[in-house]
Amino acid sequence: MGITFLEASPDRLVATMPVAGNTQLYRMLHGGASVVLAESLGSIGAVLHAGDGHIAVGVDINATHHRAVRGGTVTGVATALHLGDTAATYEVVISDDGGRRLCTSRVTCAIHGRRRRP
């Protein structure tokens, strides 16, 4: 996928991803690639929020694709909407090189205590 993280904290994460190599039949950024970027940002944010001794697992994601892009790099910015004891939710905005919004996603992760192996 070629995702590069530029900033990562429980409250805000930023990452980039090239369009090249992540396209569909019509040579546009694949919607699934946008969802992978969004879930990567939200999941890592939830893990950072959860802290040591806990895990975070995705339980819900949605994405609205607003426009297509055929080249360059896209940037995803995840902003925490809710950081609770048992769940973390992020809004992820994915934009093109010109700052135009391509996709809006919401990612929710459940937070659990780390499971011990038998």
Rank of each mutant, 00 (worst) to 15 (best):
S34T: 13
G45S: 05
V107E: 01
P10I: 06
A87V: 12
C109Q: 06
G84H: 13
R114W: 02
V74Q: 02
S95G: 00
T104R: 15
V69L: 03
T73P: 00
T4W: 00
G84C: 09
A56K: 11
T75A: 04
R100I: 07
L48Y: 11
S95R: 15
E7G: 02
N62T: 15
S40W: 02
G113A: 15
Q24E: 04
D85K: 15
V92S: 04
T79D: 07
R106N: 08
A68M: 02
L6T: 12
D60L: 11
D11K: 14
V107L: 09
A33C: 09
C103M: 07
L102P: 07
D96W: 09
R101G: 00
D11F: 06
A50N: 03
D60C: 06
G72M: 09
R12I: 06
A68C: 03
E39Q: 07
I3N: 02
I3K: 01
L29K: 07
R117T: 14
V77N: 02
H112I: 00
A87G: 03
E91Q: 14
E7R: 14
G53C: 07
I3A: 02
I44H: 13
A110W: 03
I44M: 14
E91C: 06
R117Q: 13
I111R: 08
Y90A: 04
H65F: 10
L29N: 04
G51Q: 03
